[in-house]
């Protein structure tokens, strides 16, 4: 009986906490594609070779081989693009929205989802100005937001910042290698 109770406690502790919305996707779209009133989804069903290239470049492959960019248009002119990027860790998933402007540089990053456990860590990293470090980055510039905020935040928020850096790096690679293809 002791082992059953111990097992239940361990299982409960290991259980990933539920996901919470930090920023609604609609709000993230409005912030990252300002003024856009028409949208298209550009969906890439990525080949094995391209998946491998992405993996070699940034250690990431698109989940189930799919990458979707949402392109915003204002009066039929492209205003920018964004993609939602998930980053997994042992505490659960994070979701980012990474927006690109017309020059292909990062317009902004929003953390749209986290788990209940991760939320306070993520918020601490965001309050320290993490996402400001990504603004204007070209897609070949590695994100270094975590290095900038780590001296001012705790260890777990620092770890969250590293994960967000990683998500931005994956989004940059996807944009660099896929976005311009027709």
């Amino acid at each position: 009986m002791k082992s059953i109770i111990l097992g239940a406690v361990i299982a409960a502790l290991l259980h990933i906490t539920p996901t919470v919305v930090l920023v609604k996707r609609e709000d993230a779209v409005a912030r990252l594609l300002p003024g856009a009133e028409q949208f298209t989804a550009r969906e890439f069903h990525v080949s094995s070779a391209d998946s491998r290239k992405l993996h070699d470049a940034v250690g990431w492959e698109p989940p189930d081989g799919m990458v979707t960019f949402y392109i915003g248009k204002h009066q039929d002119q492209v205003a920018g693009a964004l993609l939602f990027m998930r980053v997994d860790c042992q505490h659960g998933p994070l979701e980012l929205a990474v927006g690109f402007d017309l020059r292909g540089t990062i317009r902004g990053v929003e953390v749209t989802k986290a788990t209940v456990e991760m939320k306070p860590w993520v918020l601490e990293a965001l309050r320290a100005g993490l996402t400001e470090a990504y603004r204007g980055l070209a897609t070949d510039q590695p994100p270094a937001g975590a290095d900038k905020v780590k001296p001012r935040i705790g260890a777990m928020p620092g770890y969250m910042a590293e994960l967000i850096d990683k998500g931005v790096m994956h989004a940059e690679a996807a944009y660099r290698m896929l976005y311009g293809r027709k």
């Binding site: 949208f39 989804a41 069903h45 080949s47 081989g65």
Partner: peptide
């Protein structure tokens, strides 16, 4: 996975 990357675009 396809042999080459396939792109599709649709309004959303």
């Amino acid at each position: 996975p396809p042999d080459t990357t396939i792109v599709a675009e649709r309004p959303v």
